[in-house]
Amino acid sequence: MKKSIAALGLLSLGACASPYVGTPYTAPAVPVTSVGIVDDTLPDEAIAYEAASTMGNFGLLGALIDAGVQDSRKDRVNEALASVNHTPEATFEAHLIGALADAGIKGAMLQGPDREKRAFLEKYPVAPAGAQALIDFNVTGYGYVNAGNQLWRPTVAADVKMVDAATGKTLMENRIVYNPVDAQAGIVTLAPNPEFVFQNREDMISQPERLAEGIDDALKQVADAAVRLMK
Protein backbone atom coordinates (compact mmCIF):
# COMPACT_ATOMS: atom_id res chain seq x y z
CA MET A 1 0.00 0.00 0.00
CA LYS A 2 1.41 3.29 -1.07
CA LYS A 3 1.71 6.03 1.47
CA SER A 4 0.36 9.41 0.49
CA ILE A 5 2.79 12.27 0.25
CA ALA A 6 1.17 15.59 0.96
CA ALA A 7 2.63 18.87 -0.17
CA LEU A 8 1.15 22.00 1.30
CA GLY A 9 0.70 24.97 -0.96
CA LEU A 10 -1.31 27.60 0.78
CA LEU A 11 -2.96 29.83 -1.71
CA SER A 12 -4.86 32.94 -0.87
CA LEU A 13 -7.87 33.12 -3.13
CA GLY A 14 -8.24 36.78 -2.31
CA ALA A 15 -4.75 37.44 -3.56
CA CYS A 16 -5.72 35.95 -6.93
CA ALA A 17 -8.55 38.42 -7.54
CA SER A 18 -7.85 41.75 -9.24
CA PRO A 19 -7.49 44.60 -6.75
CA TYR A 20 -10.58 46.71 -6.31
CA VAL A 21 -9.97 50.32 -7.32
CA GLY A 22 -12.39 52.78 -5.78
CA THR A 23 -12.87 56.49 -6.23
CA PRO A 24 -11.95 58.46 -3.10
CA TYR A 25 -14.09 61.42 -2.15
CA THR A 26 -12.60 64.86 -2.61
CA ALA A 27 -14.61 67.35 -0.61
CA PRO A 28 -15.88 70.09 -2.93
CA ALA A 29 -15.58 73.78 -2.13
CA VAL A 30 -19.29 73.80 -1.32
CA PRO A 31 -19.80 70.90 1.09
CA VAL A 32 -22.51 68.33 0.39
CA THR A 33 -25.19 68.85 3.02
CA SER A 34 -28.21 67.17 1.43
CA VAL A 35 -28.48 63.85 -0.39
CA GLY A 36 -31.12 61.50 -1.76
CA ILE A 37 -30.64 57.79 -1.10
CA VAL A 38 -31.64 55.37 -3.85
CA ASP A 39 -34.26 52.82 -2.80
CA ASP A 40 -33.74 49.04 -2.45
CA THR A 41 -30.56 49.00 -0.39
CA LEU A 42 -30.69 45.33 0.66
CA PRO A 43 -31.35 41.96 -0.99
CA ASP A 44 -34.54 40.18 0.05
CA GLU A 45 -32.87 37.28 1.83
CA ALA A 46 -29.91 36.72 4.13
CA ILE A 47 -27.12 34.34 3.20
CA ALA A 48 -25.75 31.52 5.37
CA TYR A 49 -22.70 30.41 3.47
CA GLU A 50 -19.81 28.12 4.28
CA ALA A 51 -16.94 29.20 2.02
CA ALA A 52 -14.92 25.98 2.07
CA SER A 53 -17.25 23.14 2.96
CA THR A 54 -15.96 19.60 3.25
CA MET A 55 -18.42 18.26 0.67
CA GLY A 56 -17.30 20.84 -1.84
CA ASN A 57 -14.03 18.91 -2.13
CA PHE A 58 -15.68 15.79 -3.53
CA GLY A 59 -16.09 16.61 -7.17
CA LEU A 60 -19.37 17.19 -8.97
CA LEU A 61 -21.43 14.92 -6.70
CA GLY A 62 -19.99 16.62 -3.62
CA ALA A 63 -20.71 20.04 -5.12
CA LEU A 64 -24.35 19.08 -5.73
CA ILE A 65 -24.76 17.80 -2.16
CA ASP A 66 -23.03 20.94 -0.86
CA ALA A 67 -25.40 23.18 -2.83
CA GLY A 68 -28.36 21.38 -1.25
CA VAL A 69 -26.94 21.75 2.26
CA GLN A 70 -26.15 25.44 1.70
CA ASP A 71 -29.66 26.14 0.35
CA SER A 72 -31.32 24.26 3.20
CA ARG A 73 -29.29 26.16 5.79
CA LYS A 74 -30.05 29.48 4.14
CA ASP A 75 -33.78 28.69 4.17
CA ARG A 76 -33.73 27.77 7.86
CA VAL A 77 -31.82 30.92 8.76
CA ASN A 78 -34.28 33.09 6.82
CA GLU A 79 -37.20 31.31 8.50
CA ALA A 80 -35.61 32.00 11.88
CA LEU A 81 -35.18 35.69 10.98
CA ALA A 82 -38.77 35.90 9.74
CA SER A 83 -39.99 34.39 13.01
CA VAL A 84 -38.80 37.53 14.82
CA ASN A 85 -40.08 39.89 12.09
CA HIS A 86 -36.58 40.94 11.15
CA THR A 87 -36.71 44.00 8.87
CA PRO A 88 -33.05 44.76 8.21
CA GLU A 89 -33.62 47.16 5.32
CA ALA A 90 -35.75 49.56 7.33
CA THR A 91 -33.35 49.41 10.29
CA PHE A 92 -30.35 49.92 8.02
CA GLU A 93 -31.85 52.87 6.14
CA ALA A 94 -32.91 54.58 9.37
CA HIS A 95 -29.39 54.14 10.77
CA LEU A 96 -27.81 55.43 7.54
CA ILE A 97 -29.93 58.59 7.65
CA GLY A 98 -28.92 59.08 11.29
CA ALA A 99 -25.22 58.55 10.53
CA LEU A 100 -25.42 61.06 7.68
CA ALA A 101 -27.13 63.56 9.99
CA ASP A 102 -24.30 63.13 12.51
CA ALA A 103 -21.89 64.07 9.70
CA GLY A 104 -23.93 67.16 8.84
CA ILE A 105 -25.66 65.68 5.79
CA LYS A 106 -29.43 65.56 5.49
CA GLY A 107 -30.46 62.29 3.84
CA ALA A 108 -33.82 61.32 2.41
CA MET A 109 -34.88 57.96 1.00
CA LEU A 110 -36.20 57.91 -2.55
CA GLN A 111 -39.19 55.67 -3.19
CA GLY A 112 -38.75 52.79 -5.67
CA PRO A 113 -38.33 51.20 -8.03
CA ASP A 114 -36.56 48.03 -6.83
CA ARG A 115 -33.34 47.04 -8.58
CA GLU A 116 -33.56 44.50 -11.36
CA LYS A 117 -30.24 43.06 -10.18
CA ARG A 118 -27.86 43.75 -7.30
CA ALA A 119 -25.75 46.33 -9.11
CA PHE A 120 -25.45 50.11 -9.21
CA LEU A 121 -28.25 51.80 -11.12
CA GLU A 122 -27.37 52.74 -14.68
CA LYS A 123 -29.76 55.66 -14.72
CA TYR A 124 -30.50 57.69 -11.62
CA PRO A 125 -33.86 59.18 -10.68
CA VAL A 126 -34.32 62.90 -10.33
CA ALA A 127 -32.91 64.06 -7.02
CA PRO A 128 -35.29 65.62 -4.53
CA ALA A 129 -35.31 69.41 -4.39
CA GLY A 130 -32.21 70.72 -2.62
CA ALA A 131 -30.25 67.45 -2.79
CA GLN A 132 -26.74 67.98 -4.14
CA ALA A 133 -25.95 64.30 -4.55
CA LEU A 134 -27.48 60.84 -4.74
CA ILE A 135 -26.21 57.88 -2.77
CA ASP A 136 -26.49 54.46 -4.38
CA PHE A 137 -26.01 52.07 -1.44
CA ASN A 138 -26.10 48.60 -2.85
CA VAL A 139 -25.70 45.90 -0.22
CA THR A 140 -24.83 42.91 -2.38
CA GLY A 141 -25.08 40.38 0.43
CA TYR A 142 -25.69 40.10 4.14
CA GLY A 143 -26.14 37.27 6.61
CA TYR A 144 -23.71 34.76 8.07
CA VAL A 145 -20.51 33.23 6.80
CA ASN A 146 -18.19 30.47 7.91
CA ALA A 147 -14.73 30.11 6.33
CA GLY A 148 -14.98 26.31 6.50
CA ASN A 149 -15.43 24.20 9.65
CA GLN A 150 -15.08 27.42 11.64
CA LEU A 151 -17.51 29.63 13.54
CA TRP A 152 -20.48 31.43 12.02
CA ARG A 153 -20.19 35.20 12.09
CA PRO A 154 -22.20 38.03 10.49
CA THR A 155 -21.07 39.34 7.12
CA VAL A 156 -22.10 42.22 4.87
CA ALA A 157 -20.78 43.21 1.45
CA ALA A 158 -21.74 46.55 -0.03
CA ASP A 159 -20.88 48.74 -2.99
CA VAL A 160 -21.53 52.41 -2.33
CA LYS A 161 -21.47 55.28 -4.75
CA MET A 162 -22.15 59.00 -4.45
CA VAL A 163 -23.00 60.86 -7.65
CA ASP A 164 -23.43 64.57 -8.27
CA ALA A 165 -27.16 65.22 -8.60
CA ALA A 166 -26.68 67.83 -11.30
CA THR A 167 -23.96 66.32 -13.47
CA GLY A 168 -24.11 62.60 -12.67
CA LYS A 169 -20.37 62.63 -12.00
CA THR A 170 -19.13 59.99 -9.53
CA LEU A 171 -17.99 61.77 -6.39
CA MET A 172 -17.10 58.62 -4.44
CA GLU A 173 -17.25 54.89 -5.02
CA ASN A 174 -16.09 52.16 -2.70
CA ARG A 175 -16.59 48.56 -1.65
CA ILE A 176 -16.95 47.72 2.02
CA VAL A 177 -16.97 44.18 3.37
CA TYR A 178 -17.70 43.32 6.99
CA ASN A 179 -16.01 40.05 7.95
CA PRO A 180 -14.63 39.11 4.53
CA VAL A 181 -13.36 35.63 3.75
CA ASP A 182 -10.34 35.94 1.45
CA ALA A 183 -10.59 39.73 1.25
CA GLN A 184 -9.99 41.26 -2.16
CA ALA A 185 -7.15 43.80 -2.23
CA GLY A 186 -8.29 47.42 -2.21
CA ILE A 187 -11.63 46.99 -0.46
CA VAL A 188 -12.44 48.47 2.93
CA THR A 189 -12.60 45.68 5.49
CA LEU A 190 -14.40 45.73 8.82
CA ALA A 191 -13.56 43.22 11.52
CA PRO A 192 -16.47 41.15 12.85
CA ASN A 193 -17.86 41.92 16.27
CA PRO A 194 -16.77 38.92 18.41
CA GLU A 195 -19.99 39.23 20.41
CA PHE A 196 -21.99 37.66 17.58
CA VAL A 197 -20.75 34.15 16.97
CA PHE A 198 -22.55 30.84 16.45
CA GLN A 199 -21.24 27.30 16.56
CA ASN A 200 -23.42 25.74 13.89
CA ARG A 201 -26.78 25.85 12.10
CA GLU A 202 -28.78 24.73 15.13
CA ASP A 203 -27.07 27.34 17.28
CA MET A 204 -28.11 30.01 14.75
CA ILE A 205 -31.74 29.05 14.25
CA SER A 206 -32.36 28.46 17.95
CA GLN A 207 -31.45 32.10 18.74
CA PRO A 208 -33.33 34.14 16.11
CA GLU A 209 -33.26 37.42 18.05
CA ARG A 210 -29.51 37.28 18.47
CA LEU A 211 -29.15 36.14 14.87
CA ALA A 212 -31.03 39.25 13.71
CA GLU A 213 -29.13 41.48 16.11
CA GLY A 214 -25.80 40.34 14.66
CA ILE A 215 -26.93 41.27 11.15
CA ASP A 216 -28.23 44.68 12.22
CA ASP A 217 -24.99 45.38 14.08
CA ALA A 218 -22.94 44.52 10.99
CA LEU A 219 -25.13 46.63 8.70
CA LYS A 220 -24.80 49.63 11.01
CA GLN A 221 -21.02 49.37 10.97
CA VAL A 222 -21.04 49.28 7.17
CA ALA A 223 -23.29 52.36 7.05
CA ASP A 224 -20.97 54.19 9.47
CA ALA A 225 -17.90 53.30 7.39
CA ALA A 226 -19.59 54.54 4.21
CA VAL A 227 -20.37 57.89 5.82
CA ARG A 228 -16.72 58.18 6.91
CA LEU A 229 -15.75 57.74 3.25
CA MET A 230 -17.93 60.73 2.36
CA LYS A 231 -15.90 63.17 4.45
Binding site: S4, I5, A6, L8, G9, L11, S12, A147, V181, P192
Partner: peptide, 16 residues
Protein backbone atom coordinates in the same frame (compact mmCIF):
# COMPACT_ATOMS: atom_id res chain seq x y z
CA UNK B 1 -5.98 46.72 16.76
CA UNK B 2 -7.62 43.34 17.33
CA UNK B 3 -9.31 41.61 14.46
CA UNK B 4 -10.57 38.24 13.32
CA UNK B 5 -9.26 37.26 9.91
CA UNK B 6 -10.97 34.51 7.91
CA UNK B 7 -9.82 32.85 4.73
CA UNK B 8 -9.54 29.65 2.79
CA UNK B 9 -6.56 27.74 1.54
CA UNK B 10 -6.02 24.94 -0.91
CA UNK B 11 -3.86 21.94 -0.06
CA UNK B 12 -2.59 19.96 -3.01
CA UNK B 13 -2.40 16.30 -2.08
CA UNK B 14 -0.15 14.10 -4.16
CA UNK B 15 -0.89 10.40 -4.13
CA UNK B 16 0.26 7.47 -6.20
Amino acid sequence: HDTIVAGTSVTTIYTG
